[in-house]
Design a protein around this nucleic acid. Structure first.
Lengths: 345, 345
DNA sequence: TTGTAAGCGTTATCAC
DNA sequence: GTGATAACGCTTACAA
């Protein structure tokens, strides 16, 4: 039996087994320096046979590079973020990077702590996802000056990958107008300090104006509750509204996010208004479950996975120095996904 | 300005600043050895002021412990897994551990690779989530002999946290029977080698028998498609069935997982059968979106977050040696969450 | 083409 | 109470 209680072996052991020095092993494995084919072959075989894996710790320590990137996100359970992360992960795998995810529970303080922690891990760079409005400056605590890329968050002097929330929301209004809707309600949040949401609201108003429609604050339902449990918040607001006013004042409704749109659909349906028969609904984000809802949700797609991929690409090219990090942000295209929840007025 | 281009400083720098040796700094920070209060105070202040963070790499190298645990999961985007991970994460944060997640895309080979990679990172232990039926033995490649805990997966000689899938599914049948249903359909997968799913099917059959109902293969719809896109697979199977046979042959239906139940609800609704009016539907898992569906899904809850938490606790106590790792599995309770999709026959 | 040895930033052992 | 110093496992000059 060759494999009884073999302990983790290190480069020295391997060197001894191959009858060469550690530097030869190192070079054979990394290909940095030329090693006689026969020797190299032998080393590779031994490494294979014994499942040799160089210690990330030792290597990281001596090279000051780890092939690890830190990803910071507010919430591991939010499908929007996890889809972005999937994009990052796919790209990272391709280039042999490991990602480590820090989650902040939407909290600025925890965000900073996670940053510190991952920084101490000697990550080669960061991708920071999401649009919390933080008060501390990353550049101040980024003592190792590793590259930073933001996704879905705009930070001065840092590269980000974004969508144009305002324009995207305008498109949603345009779309509804093209379906001949004249009274379009809006359900969302205000005062969150989340710039993306503010931009969406702006887009709603701008879209109305562009299409010659007047803004009516009565049918613009905004909550300033904490950002969580959006489904119930949206449901509650709209349900109350419908009980008091019926649905005569609008023929279409935009949810600031898909979850909000779901809440609205349920409120509508529970108040016996047909979607899309009496009221059309459109959401924003195109999260997974909008394919499953009843009716399937028409929504504004954010290319989440692609955002992650592109963010990762930007980061990796900055890390590997192919080009100096570009502080320009990239904006990705959004598009309306027509499904079942919106129809002709 | 005190903070201009200060580079990352290390323990030596700090020692110099404090006028003491590195070992004193180390001891002051870790508290392992006693340090004169005044000195300690000074060191702590300096550390604070300069945002000193000990290098995880260096520490990991010399202690062979990293306070990092590896979490391996099939799919970062699957809400079932991410909820488990949230539980792990919460527990890890509390104990000062960092988690690093490896994703395998449901692939055995990738699972092994992730294990290797994280092992090279010198993680202190692993939590492996999900029920792929892998063919390699972890114990063989676990060269550093770190503790392993499985969640939602049974592995011989290793501790796991599980639910009793068979019993849980029986409960679902019981529940439907208590609603006086006599003809209960089942939609799921077969031949996946995923033991949990096989147990669920067993539970369905056992539940039928227990309630004096005959198993009818006509209304047990099983797919052997690849496990992905379950919504559409379920939708397709049931839609075809309904078009050919109508829905007279059953008054209730169990989806092997919530997503499957969603697919079934849509197929039912698109074929103009009312849920729960004509057919009651119950799912399994209680993922987030089952609260949002229309109708809201009645389903079997798995305590996912708790499973993660408990798995993490087991792992940490094994790591810290409070008790020898227990190879006994723990089974958590499942419960039916009554919502709207199931009613009296 | 290969080997030797210094160094990466910590902690642990042993002196003092 | 505190300070040298040798590990930890790797990479990389510098020699040979």
């Amino acid at each position: 039996m060759e494999n009884e209680t073999k302990k983790q072996l290190n480069i020295k052991d391997l060197a001894r087994l191959a009858g060469v020095s550690t530097s030869t092993v190192s070079n054979a494995l990394s290909g940095r320096r030329h090693v006689k084919p026969a020797t190299k072959q032998k080393i590779l075989e031994l490494a294979q046979q014994y499942h040799y894996q160089p210690s990330v710790m030792a290597r990281g320590l001596c090279r000051q590079k780890t092939k690890i990137i830190g990803v910071i996100t507010a919430d591991l359970y939010n499908p929007y973020y996890t889809e972005v992360i999937k994009g990052i992960d796919a790209q990272a795998k391709q280039l042999g990077y490991t990602i480590v995810i820090g989650s902040t529970n939407y909290d600025d303080y925890q965000e900073m702590e996670e940053f510190r922690k991952l920084n101490a891990l000697c990550v080669d760079g960061f991708i920071i996802i999401g649009s919390q409005n933080t008060h501390f400056r990353f550049s101040e605590i980024n003592s190792r000056k590793v590259p930073l890329v933001f996704v879905d968050r705009e930070v001065k002097n840092h590269p980000s990958v974004l969508i144009d929330n305002k324009a995207a929301m305008m498109k949603a209004v345009d779309y509804l107008c093209s379906l001949r809707h004249k009274k379009i309600a809006y359900v969302g949040y205000q005062g969150t300090n989340i710039i993306n949401l503010e931009k969406r609201l702006e887009g709603y108003k701008a879209g109305l104006k562009k299409n010659g429609l007047a803004f009516n604050s009565k049918i613009c339902l905004l909550s300033n509750a904490l950002l969580s449990n959006e489904f119930n918040v949206a449901y509650g607001m709209l349900d109350t509204y419908l009980k008091n006013n019926g649905c005569a004042s609008f023929s279409a409704l935009i949810g600031e996010a898909d979850i909000i749109a779901f809440g609205c659909m349920r409120a509508l349906q529970d108040n016996h208004v047909k979607v899309p028969g009496q009221v059309s609904v459109v959401g924003f984000d195109n999260i997974h479950s909008s394919k499953f809802s009843n009716p399937r949700l028409t929504t504004v797609n954010q290319p989440k996975k692609k955002m992650g991929k592109i963010g990762a690409k930007m980061l990796f090219s900055a890390i590997e120095g192919h080009r100096k990090i570009n502080t320009n942000s990239v904006y990705l295209k959004t598009v309306i996904v027509e499904r079942e929840s919106a129809g002709l007025a």
